[in-house]
Design a protein around this nucleic acid. Structure first.
Lengths: 161, 161
DNA sequence: AAATTTATCTTAATCGGTTAAGATAAATAA
DNA sequence: TTATTTATCTTAACCGATTAAGATAAATTT
């Protein structure tokens, strides 16, 4: 069950190493789970991600969707093609600016998707209910620190050759 | 700065919703950071991931590498082609079983890579040092619960039409 | 031992993403 | 107002992952 995850992190206590390992695992599994849910919906992960944004934000232009998701506009064009094909979204020309393509969720799109999340929501709720407010706050702060750190490190890397 | 992440999770307290949001962010950023590091090394993310495994485990067969990384054997063949080309690994036939291809890190492969992680290691250490053992244990347990949950949910989904 | 089955890796076809060039519409300048 | 520049989306060429079929070696059966 246990593996050697000492790798480079030998300054950490075993407990800390375990934590680092689980955090990695967490990211990897999140990606896999998302992938799986998408498959269940008959979509690829990217299309699903875009549809998810769309259902949250309501109608956006193709360009905005690209920015929201971090995809290229070229990729987004194909995403919209496929989602439109599958009946999840509708494409419209913006009458105010006819260069723009406005994408909006098709009728009932959201309700076709949410059932897949019921169980996960329940399980999440169950885990979270084990912690009181102070503990939750502690965990939240930790994850935030990690996220801030990651962002900072990415910036640092970009500003290096 | 803040966005609407209530989406489906309306049974959660605002604090809990924030936590769920940060956890998602965490996964997304981890993927992006990994991507960035790989680019710095002149590799794509997949090749880097494989090389990382290889440097930790030592020589493995192509099939084992596929299993370790969750890639298909077809993808692994290409990964090895590129890593060999770039001088990071060496390909050998297993003399005991000549169907098998044994892949091992090339001389000095590990040391060509680790410098990119120095800063991240430092920052990680700094975050972790803010927490005492009990707190660390709490966080670790939480992440483990999440990981177990994710795994269980994935199993559940697979066993459904 | 020869024939069949199984295991391992590679190859080929397809799919989806990126980058960069192209088409069309709006904004700006002459 | 016409010409140029800028903005937005689409298209085309390329790259890497997946799936499935193919090649080769080992194991098993007869």
């Amino acid at each position: 069950m246990s593996r050697d995850h000492s790798h480079l992190f030998s300054d950490l206590t075993p407990l800390q190493q375990d934590l680092v390992y689980e955090l990695r695992q967490n990211s990897a599994r999140a990606v896999m789970l998302h992938q799986l849910i998408s498959e269940k919906l008959g979509l690829n992960a990217t299309d699903h991600k875009c549809l998810d944004f769309l259902n949250r934000t309501g109608p956006v232009t193709a360009g905005q969707l690209a920015e929201l998701t971090g995809l290229t506009t070229g990729a987004v064009t194909n995403v919209i093609d496929r989602l439109e094909q599958a009946g999840y979204v509708v494409r419209d020309k913006d009458p105010k600016d006819r260069r723009r393509v406005v994408v909006k969720p098709a009728e009932g799109s959201s309700s076709r998707i949410s059932p897949q999340f019921e169980s996960i929501m329940q399980s999440t709720l169950q885990i979270l209910s084990r912690y009181d407010e102070e503990q939750t706050r502690l965990i939240l702060e930790f994850i935030r620190l990690c996220n801030d750190m990651t962002l900072a490190e990415m910036e640092k890397m970009k500003n290096q050759p």
